[in-house]
Amino acid sequence: MRHRVCLTVNGKAEEFDVEPRLLLCHLLRAYVGLTGTNIGCDTSQCGSCTVLMDGKAVKSCTVLAVQADGCEVTTIEGLAGADGLHPVQQSFWDNHGLQCGFCTPGMIMTAVEILERNPDASDADVRHGLEGNICRCTGYENIVKSIVAAGTRATS
């Protein structure tokens, strides 16, 4: 049994014919060809696959494509605007917020939500806000720095 799924991905509406078991992350990667959404685990722990679904950060490995029917999905590829990098992307670059880059798309998408909820997020707020994201490379230090710097909290 297959299902029709309509999704608006990074502003572009598309229809897909999918098996119900297809995960959103696989739809994005294999059907839409957006491989920026990485898959780092199979137990929903790592957050590498985080995308925005109707504006909220979700782990796309834990959403069925059929559940996302009719939703707007923003992936890392759709974050930058016509005027260049999103401030969070820029901040990750400026503050060395990545090493191997594998966790980075998920970190950035989560950061967007953290700052959306609290633009004035402190170091501790960000550390707490990243509880669903794992980075094995950076020790989080510069990720936290990048996110705080992308918010409104004045950095010294």
Binding site: K56, A57, V58, K59, T62, E113, E131, G132
Partner: peptide, 9 residues
């Protein structure tokens, strides 16, 4: 519960 992403779903 869990994390932001989990709480959103």
């Amino acid at each position: 519960i869990g994390d932001i992403q989990v709480r959103n779903r």
